[in-house]
Design a binder for these strands. Structure first.
Lengths: 123, 123
DNA sequence: TATTGTTATACTCTATAACTATA
DNA sequence: TATAGTTATAGAGTATAACAATA
């Protein structure tokens, strides 16, 4: 948890956590406002505000769903995708600069631990 | 980071993160308002509000510093100490219920990983 | 009628600036 | 003068309730 806090503090300088969270949700496909709200465990109005903020930054765009007029489809813009890649790169760089000081054996332990934690998390 | 998020979401039901953070700072000794603000990287006024909230809950108390009249010394009350122990126990319980399903070898890997991450964090 | 999304309203957190008291 | 803490004010996040549009 301490490591998570350090990485978050480091990358929060660029974009607020709740904005970043939505960008990562949109990385591979567009989603509706309700899908985004549910996955972030946030209310509908809160997600409306967050989407507004991201739209003002030109990181996401809204479009209509041809199959269901009630839906608002939120997609990443090229600018949003670029920002997402940059923030991810910063997080990776933080970790990479520390990992390069470790031995191969220590790296193996961390990789194995990540696998175990992944298993724990899925239960 | 996913694990940290899960544990935090779980225990945030009981007490807000910024309140919990101050309680943990006071676990072993009292601190001044500025010390608390600096360690949480938060402004003075924000910390004043947080201390007010904790005081209303009877989790901390303010007292004067005999050596320096400008200081306000913040200490954990018995009620605050009790709450801190309970929240910690909940966090531990969340993790313990998952760890007990792991093999001895997997537990050893996690312990070793914790040691490595601790080393990374101190740099 | 139920669902999706937005607007209205209120609460809580945050910060900076201004103030009081003490060193 | 500088430091510790509080109060004043404003900005940004959250939630619930009420509403419009669509299914």
């Amino acid at each position: 948890m301490r490591i998570a806090r350090l990485v978050r503090a480091d990358s929060s300088a660029e974009i607020a956590p709740h904005l970043y969270s939505v960008l990562t949700q949109l990385e591979h496909q567009p989603r509706t406002a309700t899908q985004l709200a549910d996955r972030d465990r946030v209310s509908g109005p809160a997600m409306t505000r967050t989407i507004n903020a991201l739209q003002r930054l030109d990181y996401v765009s809204r479009s209509a769903d041809p199959d269901d007029g009630r839906h608002v489809i939120v997609s990443l813009t090229p600018e949003g995708a670029k920002t997402l890649r940059r923030v991810k790169r910063n997080r990776d760089a933080w970790m990479a600069s520390r990992l390069e000081k470790l031995s191969d054996q220590e790296l193996t332990v961390l990789a194995e631990a990540a696998r175990i934690l992944h298993k724990i998390q899925e239960e």
